[in-house]
Design a protein around this nucleic acid. Structure first.
Lengths: 171, 171
DNA sequence: GTCTATAATTTGATAGAC
DNA sequence: GTCTATCAAATTATAGAC
């Protein structure tokens, strides 16, 4: 299906821009140029920008959970390692923010629905950590683990020093 | 000086908007309406938006450091408490993000100079923590303390649950 | 120091052809 | 499914009057 391909290409382009500057950092025109169609063509796939942003957030969440896999049987430490690797790779491989961390920071300007999808990402990651940490001892709360990773990404990127991320998240 | 007053009123209005949605969440027109002058009048005080954003960041940093006070003589735990209170109050009193945490997340769309000012905020907070933690034992690196606070703000605001902040930053 | 007026650009979005 | 053409609104910014 060419339709599905184009939809994903649009999402790819939008995600790359969104993860660098947030909700106002990607426009229909820019994405259209990125994928080589007209801006009106984008509107065929996503009626409004809010729909694009919501789809972006849902796909991002789904992809993260697929990569993390099933927490059943994992130790708390192993689950933390997997989430840690997710954020570390965003920084060291792509030099990008976590899409949801950035959208969340901009919460008050997000269209209705997008902020709920972003909160869903956090809920999902916290549930993943909780599932694995259930029976083990917890040196850090799941909320602390996730907050530290989001913050470490922000600090390391702005100070342009990857070692900040490692210092902030060392265990 | 009426000039100085107007400058601060402009900065107040811009900060309130910026801390809710980032760099693109405040416009000359909106600020002008907030303070009751024309948008052209804003340009008298700040030639370009980048100048406004840079001034915003510098004032924010200065105010934070004034509130934190001199780290000399503080224990590491006391210094962490003071920084913690800074972020906690932003959440519980104003329901606002840390200006620099938000700007930092949007790093790649910030005008040149603003991102450097934002990095300066982080450097200053880290230096404050380091100064007090110098001779004590360190359960957490200064980078970990600051990252956790920024991330906890983001999580708690988006999930609309202040207790998330406390869970994430409990010690 | 603030105003009016305006310029140039970008934005999200729609109508209708093919 | 993508196009051309277009729209109304918002944006940053400037020139010049008062």
């Amino acid at each position: 299906m060419a339709d599905r391909q184009m939809r994903d290409r649009i999402l790819d382009a939008a995600e790359a821009r969104a993860r660098r500057g947030g909700y106002n950092a990607f426009s229909f025109r820019e994405i259209a140029q990125d994928v080589g169609v007209s801006s009106a063509a984008i509107h065929y796939h996503f009626a409004a920008k809010a729909d694009l942003a919501a789809a972006l957030t849902l796909r991002y969440t789904k992809r993260a959970l697929e990569r993390l896999g099933d927490p059943a049987g994992l130790t708390g430490a192993a689950a933390i390692d997997r989430v840690h690797a997710l954020f570390r790779d965003a920084l060291t491989e792509d030099d990008q923010m976590c899409l949801c961390g950035l959208f969340a920071a901009e919460r008050d300007i997000l269209p209705a629905g997008v902020d709920a999808a972003v909160a869903g990402f956090f809920q999902a990651i916290l549930a993943y950590l909780r599932a694995a940490m259930r029976d083990g001892h917890a040196p850090d709360a799941p909320e602390a683990v996730l907050a530290k990773l989001e913050g470490a990404l922000i600090l390391a990127r702005t100070m342009r020093d990857v070692s900040i991320f490692h210092k902030a998240t060392a265990r």
